[in-house]
């Protein structure tokens, strides 16, 4: 039986389209599931900082917050830290506040030593599993959330991103206008 090549091409194209649509749909669902916080209000938390003070995320309402989950055992997290230090210096006066949340089994002393070695110039908070859960489980690190001045999550970043990409996201949250005055 001779098959019409046009029919074969049509079948191949149809299968290709179905495959593309199917995979894109699965990917979209997965992304939505992994970034349920994008566009939502960042869950408030109460955590201790390395200097012993108690920090609520809501204290920073009115500021653009880069919330970065990290750990001492995470080499890609270390790569970002000098960039965060620079960005805090550069944009701190414009209203940027970077907050590091250490999701670590290490002692506070070890975390403090690590933070000192890295020259961190922003608050480092001692993470808790409950806070990680509120932020989607924090399955891997680094994990950063870009929170605008009204406490809304504008973007999330899983894994290491380039410095330029981080700075672009920082500019986006800085550009948001606050409806509430900063408390800190």
């Amino acid at each position: 039986m001779k098959r019409d090549p046009l029919v074969i091409v049509a079948v191949a194209v149809t299968i290709a389209l179905m495959l593309v649509v199917g995979l894109r749909s699965v990917r979209h669902q997965q992304n939505s599931a992994s970034a349920p916080l994008k566009g939502a209000l960042a869950p408030d938390f109460t955590l201790s900082s390395l200097d012993g003070s108690t920090v609520h995320l809501s204290d920073y309402r009115g500021k653009a917050v880069l919330l970065n989950f990290w750990a001492t055992w995470c080499p890609p997290c270390k790569i970002e830290m000098p960039w965060f230090v620079e960005l805090q210096k550069q944009y701190g006066s414009a209203g940027l506040q970077i907050l590091g949340v250490a999701m670590d089994d290490a002692s506070p002393e070890e975390i403090a030593r690590f933070a000192k070695e890295m020259g961190i110039n922003y608050p480092v908070l001692l993470g808790k599993e409950t806070v990680g859960d509120a932020y989607g489980g924090v399955e891997f690190l680094p994990y950063s959330l870009y929170i605008d001045r009204n406490g809304k999550v504008l973007d999330v970043a899983y894994g290491l991103k380039g410095r330029g990409e981080i700075e672009d996201d920082v500019k986006k949250i800085l550009a948001s206008s606050a409806t509430v005055q900063a408390q800190k």
Binding site: W73, C74, P75, M103, E139, F140, L141, Y158, G159
Partner: peptide, 12 residues
Amino acid sequence: YQACDNAACFPP
């Protein structure tokens, strides 16, 4: 063990 890929690390 504690695993990583090219861009992220997973908890121990």
